[in-house]
């Protein structure tokens, strides 16, 4: 019995005592999540009739607004670092346009103003990017509404309701998060 047990004891002792965890480190577990999420935002298509009233007089500004609630979610409110908004415009009019965009809070206070876009007449490939850094613009997180104003400045060439013209606007947002 004495001799029979010795090999097993040695084997088990060796296994136990050489068990090695020195090459592991559990103190450095610091996982940082930085997902980048893309989502479409607003798009629209305008024609000449949008800029003419019932008397075929030009309307200089058309506006629309939407509520958006995504910034009310805790995940975005606490972890959004940066929002990059991409814009693409096709201006089929032989007139230039200005586009102003605003983020507003529940009380209609402006929380962020997107720099004005100037779209030249006939520019079918206009694109631009605006970046909102939350660190420098924390009030942006109070935004609950988004408004766009499309401005048609006066010009010598008047709009003709019989000739179809199209103005296309597209936008998407890229949310940079950090957890």
């Amino acid at each position: 019995m004495k001799f029979k047990l010795v090999p097993l004891q040695i084997l088990l002792c060796i296994s136990f005592f050489i068990s090695c965890t020195d090459n592991l480190n559990f103190d450095n577990i610091n996982l940082v999540l930085e997902p980048v999420v893309n989502t479409p935002i607003v798009y629209f298509e305008l024609n000449q009739n949008n800029f003419l009233d019932e008397f075929n007089q030009e309307i200089s500004v058309v506006s629309d607004i939407t509520v958006f609630r995504i910034l009310e979610t805790t995940i975005l409110k606490e972890n959004l670092v940066e929002l990059k908004i991409d814009f693409e415009v096709e201006n089929g009019f032989n007139r230039m346009f200005l586009i102003n965009m605003f983020f507003l809070d529940d009380d209609d206070n402006i929380t962020y103003t997107v720099d004005e876009f100037i779209i030249d007449a006939g520019d079918l490939n206009y694109s631009a990017t605006r970046t909102i850094l939350i660190e420098t613009t924390p009030e942006f997180l109070n935004s609950t509404r988004f408004r766009t104003d499309v401005i048609l400045p006066p010009a010598s060439t008047n709009l003709n309701p019989a000739i179809e013209k199209v103005f296309k606007f597209r936008s998407s947002g890229t949310f940079y998060l950090r957890f």
């Binding site: 798009y43 629209f44 629309d64």
Partner: peptide, 9 residues
Amino acid sequence: ILDGINFEY
């Protein structure tokens, strides 16, 4: 299918 919000002005 989500294309975003379509402003109709």
